[in-house]
Amino acid sequence: MTQRKGEASELDTDVQAHIGRQLRAGYVDILNQPVPDRFLELLAELDSREGRRAGEENDVRQNRSR
């Protein structure tokens, strides 16, 4: 375990745990939600819109890396 210096050492580790728990709880809540349809639709749209162009760019990229 690393020792924290200065201000942080005044903060009890239990308080830190409490803050961390709250912080993580809100985050994980969203993390576990399914991806909303609007994003699936967005990616599909981007994919189809740039499909042809992306194909050409990939060819160029592959040629360059050889």
Partner: peptide, 26 residues
């Protein structure tokens, strides 16, 4: 962390110990 602790006026006595979380944060 310090600002949150002050702001929330955390009373350590009311908070359960969670060694795993503490370790994760520490």
């Amino acid at each position: 962390r310090n600002a949150l602790a002050r702001r929330l006026n955390l009373d350590v006595g009311e908070i359960g110990l969670e060694p795993q979380l503490r370790a994760a944060l520490g």
